[in-house]
């Protein structure tokens, strides 16, 4: 999907910070799809992912004044909001309970994380999927599930140093894959 560049990024930010609703509508039209992809990579349930997307855009509108352009691009900022909101949703009690109920009643694909929709062919996961298994699992646990490196070392029963080295390699490979 090609984005029609109507505004420069600084114009976009300035207008959003002035509470310009048409510009916010433009922002939604151009970025909601990419953000939904990252949410789906984490939340997996499509209905829930759309709810999270709604929550994310309301947060963007409310918190736009706290966005600092010197710390990164607007998209990077929005991407982090989407990732954090998704991880929070997955970790919430209500989500955990709904996953348990489903696993009892449904004969669906069950993994370590619970009932999952296959979103491996969407967005960032599609890129990560191209990595070797040992790297892929590290990206999954750290990026998509939000575990710390210490937690991952314990979960996988491998030394922290190994987690660090492998994660570094995984990220460098990831970069070379997405490089245009």
């Amino acid at each position: 999907m090609e984005i029609s560049r109507k505004y420069t990024e600084s114009e976009l930010v300035q207008l959003l910070q002035q509470r310009n609703q048409p510009v916010f509508s433009y922002l939604y039209d151009n970025y909601s799809g990419a953000l939904l992809s990252i949410i789906l990579n984490i939340v997996k349930d499509e209905t829930l992912a759309n709810d999270v997307l709604q929550e994310v855009f309301v947060k963007i509108w409310k918190q736009i004044n706290s966005y600092d352009p010197t710390r990164g691009r607007l998209f990077t900022w929005m991407l982090n909001i989407a990732r954090n909101a998704s991880i929070d949703t997955v970790r919430s009690k209500s989500y955990q309970q709904s996953q348990q109920n489903m696993s009892l009643s449904d004969d669906t694909q069950v993994t370590a994380g619970g009932v999952e929709m296959n979103t491996d062919q969407i967005g960032l996961r599609k890129i990560v999927h191209q990595l070797r298994e040992e790297y892929r699992i590290l990206i999954d646990l750290s990026y998509f599930q939000g575990f710390t490196q210490e937690e991952i070392a314990k979960m996988l029963e491998i030394p922290l140093g190994t987690v660090k080295t492998r994660l570094r390699t995984a990220l460098i490979q990831l970069r070379s894959i997405i490089k245009p």
Partner: peptide, 21 residues
Amino acid sequence: FEASLEQSLLSDAKQPAAHVK
């Protein structure tokens, strides 16, 4: 990296449900 990540993710967007906006 930010630019290439943005480009990559924007090119593989998923259409949200119509009621969300």
